[in-house]
Simulated scan of single mutants.
Amino acid sequence: MTQALSRYDRVLGCLIGGAVGDALGYQVEFDHWDSIKAAFGPDGVTELRYNQISDDTQMTLFTAEGLLEASAGDEYESVRSAYLRWYATQKEYLPPAGAQGLAAEPWLYARRAPGNACLSGLREGARPGVNPDSKGCGTVMRSAPFGLHFGPHAAFVLAERCSALTHGHPTAGASAGAFAMIVAHLMNGETPQRAVSATMLHLRSGIDPSETADALQAAYRLAGNVTPGPNTCAPLGEGWIAEEALAIAVYCFLGTDDVRKGLTASVSHSGDSDSTGAILGNLYGAAYGHAALPKEWASQVEGRDTVAALAAMMEPFG
């Protein structure tokens, strides 16, 4: 077990940590490693020059709100409604009259490179069957709240099911579910190694092959051989698809408990840096609590007050 932490410490750490990793990576999303190195130096993205979060944190917050507003047994439809509210923020410039909750927050109406499958899936009504071939990482980066709200098995099932609201590929669902399950294990005080191992066993429990389990196995192997650093995650991919984004974050998570170093490694690569950073930030926060996050990053990240307020509301659950 990791050190004793209050549930609130872990919830706040998870949500703020995700926002920090997101903002850190959003500075270089879409950039090639060579361009990142030229702009930030050979040590990678070691500073938060801009505090803006992306669609990753936006959707994570709406996931949390959907769970908080749900009646028991109605979580799926409540999360679906929350995602449709997020979709509305991407079409408008300001909150409409009478808007409530997150939909009333003007800063969340910024369009920060939202994923195409998330937009098209929600435009089509967010029903199972949309984008059947899509396994983009947009399902994973928004799914930490399921692990904050439920135990490991229930978190996996609901995150997997809600993944199909925008991404129909089974691997997108399995990766979202696996991420939520890891978070739930961490919330129970399991070590990073045990949380990841238990999730891999769950993925391997069926007879069908699992791309997500294969990716996590590769992350586990790399973490045991290569200390996370700038662009060391390259063998795992660029993070655009679900299992790759999860694998990059898990590699850094298992490879070092130095939160600053791990977050820097998770975003200092070619590809979807904000998503890999956000996922890792969620993991670090759930494992080690809010105090483990670099203070100068955690204190200035965009939307901190809103994120902290949601964390306070989620704290009693689980």
Rank of each mutant, 00 (worst) to 15 (best):
A234F: 06
T199F: 03
M181N: 03
P230K: 04
L203M: 10
V183A: 07
C233E: 05
L203E: 15
P228M: 12
C162R: 05
M200P: 05
F156P: 03
F156V: 01
A219K: 08
P192K: 07
V183I: 15
S163R: 07
T232C: 08
H167A: 10
T212G: 08
R204E: 15
A184G: 02
N188G: 15
L201R: 13
P170N: 09
T199D: 08
A172L: 07
P209V: 11
V183H: 03
M187H: 05
A164D: 01
A234N: 06
V196K: 05
R161I: 06
Y220F: 12
L216W: 00
A198V: 02
A172S: 07
V157F: 12
S197I: 11
G189N: 09
A198S: 11
P230A: 13
G168Q: 04
A174D: 13
A223Y: 12
A172N: 01
T171S: 14
R204G: 06
P230V: 00
A198E: 14
S175F: 00
D214S: 12
T232G: 03
T166R: 04
M181Q: 14
E160T: 04
A174Q: 15
L186F: 14
A159L: 08
L216P: 01
A218G: 06
H169M: 09
M181E: 15
G224C: 10
H169L: 10
Q193M: 05
A218P: 05
A159G: 09
A172M: 01
L203Q: 09
T212P: 14
G177W: 10
A219D: 04
I207H: 06
R221E: 15
A184W: 07
P192Q: 12
C233Y: 00
Y220T: 15
G168E: 09
P170L: 08
A218M: 11
E160I: 01
E160W: 10
N225P: 02
L201C: 10
M187Q: 13
T166M: 03
A223V: 13
P230G: 02
T191V: 09
N231K: 05
G206Y: 10
T232N: 05
G177F: 11
S197K: 13
L186N: 06
L222M: 09
A198Q: 14
N231D: 15
D208I: 12
L165N: 01
P192F: 15
A219G: 12
G189P: 03
A178K: 00
A218L: 07
E190H: 14
H185W: 14
G177A: 03
L222Y: 04
L203C: 06
D208H: 08
E211R: 05
P230C: 09
A164R: 13
A213P: 06
I207G: 04
N225R: 13
N225A: 13
N231Q: 05
A180N: 11
A174F: 08
V226Q: 03
G229T: 12
S175Y: 01
T227G: 02
A164G: 13
R194F: 03
M200D: 11
A213T: 03
E190Q: 09
V157G: 03
A223Q: 10
N188W: 07
